[in-house]
Design a protein around this nucleic acid. Sequence first.
DNA 1: CGACGGGACGC
DNA 2: CGACGGGACGC
Length: 471
Amino acid sequence: MEEYPTKQPTENLDDPPNSRLFVVTSRSITEDALRDAFSVFGDIQGVWVVKDKQTKESKGICYVKFSKSSQACLAMEEMHGKQLAEASKPVKVFIAQSRSSTRHRDVEDEELTRIFVMIPKSFSEEDLKDTFKEYGDIEYCVIIKNKFTGESKGLGYVRYYKPSQAAHAIENCDKTYRAILAEPRTKATSTEDYSGGSNRGEYMGSNDTMNQYAPPMGDPGNYQAMDFRSADFTRSLMVSTRAAVTQEQIFALFDIIPGMEYCELQRDSYGMSKGHALIRYSNLGSAVYAKEKLNGFEHPPGNRLVVNFVDDGEDRNSPVGRMAMQFVAAQMMSSVWNGPSNSQVMKPPGFSSVSTMSRVQTDVNLPPLKKLAPPDSKTKERLFVVFSPAQLPPDVLEDVFCRFGSLIEVHLVPGRKVGYMKYAEKQCADDALAALHGRVVNGVKMKPAATVMTLTPDPTDRPTSSPPPDL
DNA sequence: CGACGGGACGC
DNA sequence: CGACGGGACGC
């Protein structure tokens, strides 16, 4: 009759996301008491009371895993503050931090009540509300619009009052909405007041510009003393990656440069990498230096990281920015020679040769690199490319296919040996096709072919010359 | 304040 | 031979 196994594999703890509770309670509360109290809210997959290794006594902490996030959220909402037994202290109930996360602050309702959805461009905020109100009371709906034209970008936010409502929406709404929990806004400007009612005032009370929710992850070490360190010079970087990387990998890489105060890989609702990480250093120099050295760094090999400043309109090439960077560089060099002046570990092997290696080996005589066309360029031609024996990494493909000009985007079909190269000019696509058909890059044979555009193009736009070879 | 076990897959 | 993703908030 083991309906509810107490154990489950570690890899299921966060699946689905936010389906596990962190419960702080009296040390006297037993697993059975917890199970009794929480099982009415859903299917419990496991209960674990954390005990002292030696004494085997409960530490007053436990985890309760549900099969669904909505069940866990409901249990949290209903049980928080309740007494599980006579004379026991009221329980505190939170959604457990995912096991892969290194953060230590509680998961707040703020992070669990807003969803992010893809909607038809024709949707008004009223339509959005009407669609999602069946899952719970909505505090507000917002559609992301073009700032100038006011046209919808087909994306929206829905804020519910309770985490269980947001979870319910994510679990049950039509898949085409692709509902996920919204990432909290990154800049804590905090004076938002959508409701007129309950004031979400967690951010109030901090009257300086230091960031309130930065876990002190890096060790600022000796560099705090430098003149460049001040809230005014605090700078953030955005790291983009196309291949999967872990939070730990990004952390380790950017922690090489002293002064990292914040590092978070942004995740989607399934806990996978979304391809972006936010890094913040305590000072401008470290941020400038990190971008200088790590932009283009391949990690893992073949996956080029792109590092940019989070755009705030500041000029990084200002004399003070360069001085700040040189200051950090000098500190790091001296630390390499003299040994670390603090607990920080410097540089991985090959650090100095960042981004100097070519990642493309081919017999094709390639033209030089060309800039990509802007992402919003209209696609005039797509090449359908078949790879053998396997796909090439997207950054390698971008490197190769951009060289004929006007490349907008590389798109690989997941799990298949094919992909698309989008071009803003037909001639460029034709040139790439002619130069690359049947050629080998990094041991992979490529067979690009022109595709039929679904949106019928202007006939005057299609020259009759140079038909695709070999087809 | 209050954060992560014990035991060991299966053809 | 082969075939279709994505996605972020005026401070």
